[in-house]
Each structure stands twice: as structure tokens, then as C-alpha cells.
Design a protein around this nucleic acid. Structure first.
Lengths: 337, 337
DNA sequence: ATCCAAATTGACAACGTTGTCAATGTGCAA
DNA sequence: TTGCACATTGACAACGTTGTCAATTTGGAT
């Protein structure tokens, strides 16, 4: 592999001049620059990033810590969004998956600090509160799809309440007035946020909240969606529409409707949440659902992180940046509502 | 951040001695080592990886190039498998997603070479032939879930034929003798491999291959599964079991059975392919399906890559290692067969 | 031709580590 | 006590780049 000195020798200049050309320093005569560029191309020279960052103290690398990369498939879009935005800014992602193990999180942060990353993304695969290792603060850090209770690290998460609001609003606008909400009771942030949005939308339409129309069941698997939907539809005065906590539960609700011989969307409208690629579109009829802004959280998070890195580089204080950004979920309209 | 010289000063030794301690060099007196270790801990010293690899020419980093990380969700398990095995061997993954763009692939390889990665993983999100940029050969490289026609780069892929064979075998063992095969005709490797396995299993049971029982339709979406299943079940002598190219098509087949008032698995058994997390388990009844060895390809690939890296380091010839490893798909038994 | 400021270029240190080799210390045999 | 082999330690170069600052060249005004 050719080095900067090889290029210098071939171009007949000092290696510092080559360095100037490489760094777009204007203080190089036009013809000198041409000679250098010729030599660079002739030797297929590429700067050694190790050596460069040893001196400049910037690695142009962002550490990406995730808990369970493969557990909720669509969430890999966070990584995609992060990687693409990083790439646009000449950064690369160094990936560590902790599998949710606490000791592993600490080691992950240590390892990334060892590698002199310029910043760290700490992402979870569903929206929740986290307690990252303290020394993560040694470099600019951004939480994605998670947050600290005291907001002492900047974070970006989906706007669950707005999502629940818009999902319900969609049903209200279609004329529905008795709308059920089927969710898990695992106590995750999303459950309550979406519930609050649901209640707010009803209130805005002057509809009193009827506790009988919401049901909380265990975890958000299709079986519980099935049970919940069945329960609600067998009420004396059943709802005409169902808002399901997520697409899996909606999938169960589809089964329930079939077992009750009810047609979607004619007898009952259904709205899900997550826009889980290979579920929502492939159900029959296609499921109308709210898409979580995974890709957007990834790219927004990296954008913000890079601005923090640049500020830190200029010795500006970044400790006061208690950003907690909420990103909008978008309605994907299909045939179920 | 403390450097090796700070540690040396505090321990009252030369920085070279500290270097020895860090590298487990035995040529250090016991008590000297103790002093050094005390100093390292007192200063919370961590070696600077940049400086280290500048000298040693090894970065302990593996570049991971993927085409469409988020398009087929379950495939993020390749990344997970790769990352975990890399981690166990003190390697980290530098991630680049090309989005299937050809120019981007070239830039990705260039960028990784610039970063002095010790090796490269080139992964695709479905099993197919690839033509990676030629200069990828400058470092040890491993293809995952893809291959070169001339096998001039080592690769690891799923054993599609064996998978098709075992899926069919499962149905045969359940007593089925008329088994349909529903697949896409997009011409991907998997289509033909699974078909070959299907035919081989039939042949092993002495059942002649009946072309009427296979149908090829467009892409592998649920709609086509629906159409295919309906067509096959309306034959004069319909099959008693269906082998579906993937879980999405199986999902469509479920719909077809419902529309024909047929019960799964009593009237017809169904086996899918992919074990797509949030589909297969959540269907009703649960879908029996073949799981692709994504995680295993990731970890096997990294394992093999690291052995190549070590050989290259010792200047052993690795160009002759035309490995093309086939990994077994495993049957996930649920209720549909 | 001469001078001066600005433009251009180069010499050398520095980044934090490892590699090489020489210098010093140690313990045991003579 | 001396000598020698071996263990231990240190001085210094090297890795390939950027940063600092001084040296040299250039071009225009005199």
C-alpha cells in the first residue's frame, strides 16, 4: 500500500504538500496540485485512516449499541436510517448488540470508548426507559427509541399519544362512534401513550370514555388480540371499530371476526399499529395501521448526534441539551377501516 | 485520557515496560508488573486502539456490507450472528448498507479498505448470485447468503434443496401422497432448489412428479399464495397437503382455505418456509415451516473469515479456499401439518 | 535591479503505540 | 571474587498522518 511519502517522491514535492492537497488546503499552487493528483492516481494512493485519526483525534466513527437487533424485525430500520445518514456525513457505524444483558452494556460502552468513537447511539427495539452505563457520557450520546427519566441524555422517540390520537381520529372521521381499544398490559410506554391519545380523540369528539370498550390482556400476541376482539364484539352494545395496540393483535382480531362471521371493514373497522411489513400488507383485507418512525428516528438521531459531536469539537457545552424529540407516526391506509 | 507514558511515570518505569505488561509479555518481573497494574487501574488507563493498529497493521474490525438490511426483516439475524461471533473473537463490525446500488457497493468496499478492516463480510438478504467489486479481494472476504458463480470467493448459504426435501418429507411422513408446491417464478435460487428437494423427496417415496401439482406465480406475496392454493384445491383430484415457497404465500393459502371452507390441517396440511417470526407463530393454526439458518450463516461466516484473516496474517495462501458451505434449514413444527 | 508582502513549500515534531536492539541487573558456578 | 548466561529493562526508531512554524519563492511596486 502506497503511503503519502511514496506519492511525494513521485510528485517531486515534500510529503507535507501532498497532505495539503489531500486536505483541500488552498495554499498549493495549481500546477503543483496537478502533479500531486497525478501521483495519487498513478499509485492508487489512499490515506491511512488510522494514522490520520491518531493525530486528529477524530475517527469519523459512531458506535451503535442496540439491545435486541433481531427481536422486532421492522426495527432494523433504525439501523438503516442511522447508517444512511451517517454515511452521508462520512461517518461509519460500529455495531454492538448487547442482547439486553446489563454487564454486556457496560463492556459495549467501554469497547467503543477504547475505539475512540466520536459519539454513541444507544438504541432499543421498543420504546422504553433506559439506564445506560454512566461512562457513556464521555462522548456525545444520543438515545433512540428510548429515554432517561431525567432526560439527562438527548433522545428521540415516537409520539405515541399523537399516534393513538390519529389512529382513533381516523376511525372517528369514518363515522365510528363506538370504538374499542385492545392492548396488552405489559406496562410499556406505548400502551399508555396510545391509550391517552385514544381518550383525547374521543374527548375532542365529545364522546365519553367507556372503560368497557378497552381491554388489557397480557402480552401483545395475536392470541390476545383474538380474545380481546371476541370479548368486545360480544358485548351487548358492541363497538363498530377496533383500535389495536399493534398489528399482531390486529391479526388476532381478524381471526375473531372470521369466527364471528363478521366482515372487515363492513361490520367492523380495524386499525393497527406498527405497519409490520410482512403482516399488515398481506392480511386480507389489507390492514390500515400506524407506521412507527423507525427510519426517521435513526436518521434524526444521527443528525443530532453529529451536531453534538461538532459542538463538542469546538468545545461548546453540550451538557444542557436535554432534547427529547417526539417523531410523528404516519397513518398507512389500506382496506380495514 | 491517560496515555501509556502517564502510566509509566506513575509506576516509575519506562513506557516500554508498560507496553510489555499490556501485551502479556512474560519478560516482566512480578513486582514490576504489580506496580504497573496498580498505575493502570489508578489512572483508569485504556490503550489507544488507533495508535496500536497503526503499528500492528491489524484493526480487529470486520467490514459488513449488506444490500437491503431492512427489506426482509428476519434476515437481520445474519447481522446478529455475525456480530456476536465477531465479539467473541474481539472483532467489531463496521456496517455499510448499499441499498442494492452498484456504485454504492464499490464505494463501500473502497471505504472499508481505507479503514484498514481486517476482512469483509458481503451479505445479501436473500440467497442469490453476486458480483462484488473486484478490489474486495485485497482483504480476506466471505460471502453470506450469496455466492459467485465461479466460487472464487468463499461463501455460506442455506441448503435450499435439503430444505425443500425435508419440508416435503415431513408431509410424506404424515401420510400425504398428493402434495402441491406453490412458489413464485421470480427465478431466485431458492425457487429451484426447493423444487428440486420437493421432487427428490417424492421420488424417494416412489411418487411420480405431477406437474399439475406445482404452480408458479409472479412474486412471493400472499395474494399469489391465495391464488395458487385456490387453483390447486379446485383440481379434480386436489392435493391433501401444500408446500409453500414461503410464509407469506402460506398466509395467502390460509385465506384460500378459509374461502373454500377447508380446515387446516384436517382437510389440508400446509408447510411454509422462512419461519418469519411474527407471521408463522401468529397464524391460526400456527404454521409449520422451515427456518432459514440466518443466524448460523452469520456466525459461521465470521468464524471462517477470522480463520482466513489469521492465515493471511501468517502469509499462508488463502486464494485456494473455494469454500461453498451449505447450512441446514430446520423444521419448526406447529399445527398446520 | 531592488524590495516587500503574500503565496507557496518544506523541516520537523507530534499523536500513542509496538518493534528492535542494546544496556543493565541478577543469580549461580567456578 | 569473578565471570557468564539469562532475565529484565530502557532508549530510540517506526507506523502514516497532521500541526506548527520557518524557509523559500513569487509577483508587483518602486
Amino acid at each position: 500500500m502506497a503511503t503519502i511519502k511514496d506519492v511525494a517522491k513521485r510528485a517531486g514535492v515534500s510529503f507535507k504538500t501532498v497532505s495539503r492537497v489531500l486536505n483541500d488546503d488552498t495554499a498549493v499552487r495549481h500546477e503543483t496540485r496537478a502533479k500531486v493528483i497525478e501521483a495519487i492516481e498513478a499509485l492508487d494512493y489512499r490515506p491511512n485512516i488510522m494514522a490520520r485519526s491518531l493525530r486528529s483525534q477524530r475517527t469519523h466513527t459512531i458506535g451503535f449499541i442496540s439491545d435486541l437487533i433481531a427481536s422486532t424485525p421492522y426495527a432494523s430500520r433504525i439501523i438503516q436510517g442511522a447508517q444512511e445518514r451517517a454515511w452521508e456525513n462520512d461517518y461509519l457505524l460500529l455495531l454492538i448488540n448487547t442482547g439486553g444483558n446489563q454487564a454486556m452494556k457496560q463492556t459495549a460502552v467501554d469497547t467503543l470508548l477504547d475505539r475512540q468513537v466520536d459519539g454513541i447511539i444507544y438504541a432499543t427495539m421498543y420504546h422504553r426507559e433506559v439506564h445506560p452505563p454512566e461512562n457513556i457520557r464521555e462522548v456525545p450520546t444520543m438515545l433512540i427509541d428510548c429515554f432517561m427519566a431525567d432526560n439527562s441524555l438527548p433522545s428521540v422517540v415516537p409520539n405515541e399519544e399523537e399516534g393513538g390520537y390519529n389512529a382513533t381520529l381516523h376511525l372517528l372521521q369514518k363515522g365510528h362512534r363506538r370504538i374499542g381499544y385492545i392492548c396488552d398490559n405489559s406496562g410499556v410506554v406505548a400502551t399508555f401513550g396510545r391509550l391517552a391519545g385514544y381518550q383525547k380523540a374521543l374527548a375532542d369528539y365529545g364522546i365519553p370514555f367507556d372503560p368497557d370498550l378497552t381491554c388489557f390482556l397480557g402480552s401483545s400476541i395475536s392470541r390476545n388480540g383474538f380474545l380481546g376482539a371476541k370479548t368486545l364484539m360480544q358485548l351487548e352494545n358492541p363497538p363498530t371499530a377496533l383500535f389495536c395496540f399493534n398489528d399482531r393483535m390486529a391479526m388476532g382480531a381478524y381471526d375473531a371476526m372470521r369466527s364471528l362471521n363478521l366482515t372487515i371493514p363492513d361490520d367492523v373497522a380495524i386499525v393497527g399499529f406498527d405497519n409490520q411489513d410482512l403482516v399488515a400488507a398481506d392480511l386480507n383485507p389489507g390492514l390500515t395501521t400506524m407506521a412507527l418512525p423507525h427510519y426517521e428516528m435513526g436518521s434524526w438521531g444521527v443528525d443530532h448526534l453529529i451536531s453534538l459531536i461538532n459542538k463538542a469539537q469546538d468545545n461548546l457545552d453540550i451538557s444542557e441539551q436535554h432534547v427529547h424529540k417526539l417523531l410523528t407516526c404516519s397513518l398507512i391506509e389500506r382496506a380495514s377501516a
